[in-house]
């Protein structure tokens, strides 16, 4: 339980930081595409006896590159490219699992996650990924801010935007790999976008969005985990729903942009 708690807090922080970049770049579904695309990597890694995280990482990055290639080399738009690549990678993952007979991998656990089954080694791995990503984001914050706000301007000023994009993709895939065990590949995107979106409604700077998102994400995964433990339901759905509850609260009650706060303000003004 203590290990699960540790991993829950870590992925909450990690996902909010990388998820903030997804939201501000209007690329939220890229997180969904990458997270589904890790499955063939898992199967191959299991078959060849490699570290599962490495296989998942390589497959995830390849899928993002395939999406970028379709988008830049044709007239097709990025959403179409994501839909095709996501299903293609997921389908080949299913094929590989059945062909290589790697179905000892518990598919259910990959898809939906089980935070209560984490081992000490998983905690160490998640801690390492989170640490590396937080340090890199801190070190390259001003360049990534420029690139994500104004890609053309960043390129015109001579920043290596392709390298920055690729780094963001790698960071995102690492976050997904770390989250996979907790909430599963189907729901990893919930933890990536939910807390970051919630924070977006409440603050007005990217770094604040990351910090507040990290708090919300950790709370969501810890509370989801307790619900999962006491009600004996899968942890992934519980965490995803907890993240949504936080978003719903902010959506209704955000001081500046909330649905109900705006209505309340209007009602008070019309009374005067």
């Amino acid at each position: 339980m203590r290990q699960a708690l540790g991993v829950g807090v870590l992925v909450g922080i990690l996902c909010a930081v990388m998820g903030s970049y997804l939201i501000v770049q209007q690329m939220a579904m890229l997180g969904g595409a990458i997270s589904h695309s890790v499955v063939p990597g898992l199967s191959l890694a299991y078959f060849f006896g490699w570290n599962l995280a490495v296989g998942a990482f390589v497959a995830g990055v390849l899928s993002a590159l395939a999406i970028a290639a379709i988008e830049t080399r044709s007239r097709l738009k990025v959403d179409a490219a994501m839909a095709l690549i996501l299903t293609t990678f997921l389908a080949s993952g299913m094929m590989l699992i059945s062909l290589l007979r790697t179905n000892q991998i518990d598919l259910n656990q990959i898809l939906f996650g089980d935070i209560l089954s984490v081992r000490p080694a998983d905690v160490v791995q998640t801690l390492a990924i989170t640490g590396v990503i937080l340090v890199l984001v801190k070190l390259f914050y001003k360049e990534l801010l420029f690139y994500s706000f104004d890609p053309l301007g960043a390129r015109a000023s001579g920043l290596p935007v392709n390298v920055l994009y690729f780094s963001l993709i790698c960071g995102l895939t690492l976050a997904i790999v770390a989250t996979m065990q907790t909430v599963g590949v189907l729901l990893a995107i919930a933890l990536l976008v939910g807390p970051a979106m919630t924070a977006y409604l409440l603050v007005s700077e990217l770094h604040q969005m990351m910090t507040l998102g990290a708090v919300i994400g950790s709370l969501a995964s810890v509370s989801g985990m307790y619900v999962s433990y006491y009600l004996d339901v899968p942890s992934g759905p519980a965490i995803a729903l907890a993240a949504f509850c936080a978003f719903a609260l902010a959506f209704c009650f955000s001081p500046r942009q909330g649905l109900l706060t705006a209505a309340y303000r209007q009602a008070r003004q019309s009374k005067r």
């Binding site: 001003k142 801010l145 420029f146 706000f149 053309l152 015109a156 920043l159 007005s204 700077e205 969005m209």
Partner: peptide, 28 residues
């Protein structure tokens, strides 16, 4: 060279203060 892109190239809902936008001119 300084480049000012078209208005439509920018997402004006991006969470950033005007000061930090101007600060990008000093990134390089």
């Amino acid at each position: 060279v300084a480049y000012v892109p078209q208005r439509s190239a920018i997402d004006w809902d991006y969470p950033i203060a005007a000061w930090n936008v101007a600060m990008m001119g000093r990134t390089r």
